[in-house]
Design a binder for these strands. Structure first.
Length: 599
DNA sequence: TGCGGCTATTG
DNA sequence: CACAATAGCCGCAG
């Protein structure tokens, strides 16, 4: 495809492309960001901003893959553009994702162009216009269809909605707007840097680095969705069969299979007795029949009653089988494992309360029993690493608690904490986790007092977040992510009195500061590996909050494992507080052929 | 058909 | 059964 860039002749498109190429070189050399937008109709046109440089899409691959080496940093509205490029088999090195940076700076879940734009103009989000149904009496709209901005400053809903890209000039305008927003976001990062952060100094460099790694995370999401997780269908089906039997050939056979499964439990009862095992209240009645009284029928509760009656054991086994049958069974495999042996789901780069990555299709909650089906392809290996004790280490970093940073020098940082507190390691661990989750009951009072005494800086950081959240004040993580506490629907909570709701908000805010910063650290680490692992052909196939799995050719597996470790050290060096010793981060790294072989 | 309750899995 | 997430099935209201 690069060859098409230089095709001469009197084709005006080719001439434009050659000229564009030169101008793009200039931008790359000047290290300027370049906006990229792709028209919706079969990706008919790509347009680069800054002076309206436009490149026909046939030549895009040549431009972009050349850009991998030096740059540029591609600016786009969202990773939809990255997904379009992947469909064209184009992978870029780096980007600035307006949607991701908007969610970082503003918080919340939605970051559609209309909202992103309105925010740059300080406009009320409630006033964002929506697409109006065609009105026969007001057809003569004086709005210029080539102009995306309305007189009231809002983005025209036609543009935000996606029916804008039918003409080249509009795609160019769209790219220009993207550059405007990017400039706004650069300034917004300065504003955030000026806000106080009660802990490690939150510099502009750190915030900008977070904006870049959050952008990279979106890029990774597009790639994860595109590439999928290697999954051996036949192994997966064998595992399913082990729980629920062979795949039923028709509906009638499925009914028989269900009855067989139910009979493993109901067979323990007098003949003729029947309960609907899928209804918790019926299960409760069943247990009462055999003399067991429980407030609910959750597995952990029944686990303790294994010996109380012989029906408990088969009931627990039935639950596991039912879980596989309904959620991770044949239907799940059919739905999400494609013909090329890849399990694919949707990925989001910063979802939820604190900006963790999320995934659908069971990629983040697949039962461990299914892991034998996650197999590297022939000639390939998985390189897998998980970060050890990531949350307490992140707490040490963001709060800049010197004593906790000292504890993080150890592979197991709960050991020195336990020593200082004068308690068992297990007690220290529960206490530290409890402090980060906001647990108040069930922790030894002695351990709690010890934490306050020995790590007052870290504890104060958490308490401060808790109190601010309870007061309905928004928070900002170390990396600058805004945690919205003001919105009425920002937190969904079970019904309760005012005090318990406030306490729940406090726990939410307290935890978001740690979990959110941990997510930022993880993405920074992963983005660095992605950038450095290009020559090795490193392909990420799973990101799991603190665990990263790459798929790589055999001959590069060891080098990739080394890269994981080196990138971790570099991330730790640059990510945390810069005055004093860096916080130590540790990872357990392995080269494996199957996910089940980990650890 | 949408929603809350209950359950189970993951980090 | 703390913090976060996805996702299934159930009964019930509309």
């Amino acid at each position: 495809m690069p060859g098409s860039m230089s095709s001469a002749g009197d084709d005006p498109g080719a001439q434009d492309a050659a000229e564009s190429n030169d101008r793009l070189d200039g931008l790359i050399e000047a290290n300027r960001p370049v906006a990229l937008a792709i028209g919706e109709h079969a990706a008919s046109i790509a347009v680069l901003g800054h002076g309206g440089i436009s490149v026909p899409v046939g030549d895009l691959a040549g431009v972009v893959s050349r850009g991998e080496v030096v740059g540029p940093r591609w600016v786009w509205w969202s990773n939809d553009t990255a997904a379009s490029l992947l469909d064209l088999d184009v992978r870029v090195a780096r980007c600035w994702d307006l949607s991701a940076v908007h969610r970082l700076l503003v918080g919340g879940w939605t970051s559609t162009p209309d909202r992103v734009w309105a925010h740059t103009r300080g406009l009320d989000l409630d006033g964002i216009p929506t697409v109006q149904p065609v009105d026969l009496f007001h057809q003569s709209d004086d709005h210029d269809p080539d102009e995306p901005i309305r007189v009231d400053g809002y983005l025209h809903p036609d543009w935000s909605g996606g029916s804008w890209a039918s003409r080249t000039s509009r795609v160019a305008r769209w790219a220009e707007l993207a550059l405007d927003v990017q400039q706004f976001q650069e300034v917004a990062l300065d504003d955030v840097a000026a806000e106080p952060h009660p802990g490690a100094a939150r510099t502009r460099e750190h915030l900008r680095s977070t904006a870049l790694s959050e952008s990279a995370a979106e890029l990774m999401c597009a790639e994860l969705a595109h590439d999928g997780l290697p999954f051996d269908r036949s192994v997966g089906e064998r595992i399913v069969a082990g729980f629920v039997g062979p795949r039923p050939r028709d509906a009638a056979e499925e009914v028989i299979r269900l009855e067989e499964l139910d009979a493993t439990v109901l067979g323990q009862l007098p003949p003729g007795t029947t309960f609907d095992l899928r209804r918790p209240d019926q299960v409760k009645s069943l247990l009462r029949r055999v003399g067991i009284e429980v407030p609910d029928t959750r597995a952990w509760r029944l686990e303790a009653l294994r010996d109380a009656h012989p029906i408990v054991e088969p009931l627990l086994a039935w639950r596991r089988a039912e879980r596989i049958r309904t959620t991770f069974g044949y239907h799940w495999i059919d739905e999400h494992v494609d013909a090329d042996g890849r399990l694919r789901g949707e990925w989001h780069g910063s979802d939820g309360a604190a900006g963790r990555m999320t995934a659908t299709a069971g990629l983040h909650n697949m039962p461990a029993e299914m892991r034998p089906a996650v197999l590297a392809e022939p000639g390939h290996r998985f390189v897998r690493a998980d970060l050890g004790q990531i949350e307490p280490r992140v707490l040490a970093a963001v709060s800049a608690d010197r004593q906790l940073i000292r504890a993080a020098r150890e592979d197991d940082m709960y050991a020195p904490v336990a020593a200082r507190l004068g308690v068992e390691r297990s007690v220290a661990k529960v206490a530290v986790l409890g402090a980060m989750y906001g647990q108040t009951t069930g922790i030894g009072a002695e351990a709690l007092r010890g934490l306050e005494r020995e790590y007052p800086v870290a504890m104060g950081y958490l308490r401060r977040a808790d109190e601010a959240a309870q007061g309905g004040h928004d928070l900002r993580t170390y990396g600058g992510r805004r945690i919205r506490m003001s919105g009425a629907t920002a937190v969904t909570m079970s019904a309760g009195d005012v005090r318990s709701r406030a306490a729940a908000r406090g726990r939410y805010g307290r935890n978001a500061m740690v979990q959110g910063a941990a997510a930022e650290f993880f993405k920074t680490w992963a983005a660095l590996i992605r950038a450095r692992g290009r020559q090795l052909g490193v392909e990420f196939v799973l990101c799991l909050h603190d665990e990263l799995i790459a798929h790589v050719a055999d001959e590069h597996a060891e080098a990739t494992a080394l890269l994981f470790t080196e990138c971790l050290a570099e991330t730790a060096q640059r990510w945390g507080p810069q005055d004093g010793d860096p916080v130590r981060f540790v990872a357990d790294t392995s080269v494996i052929g199957c996910w089940a072989d980990a650890k």
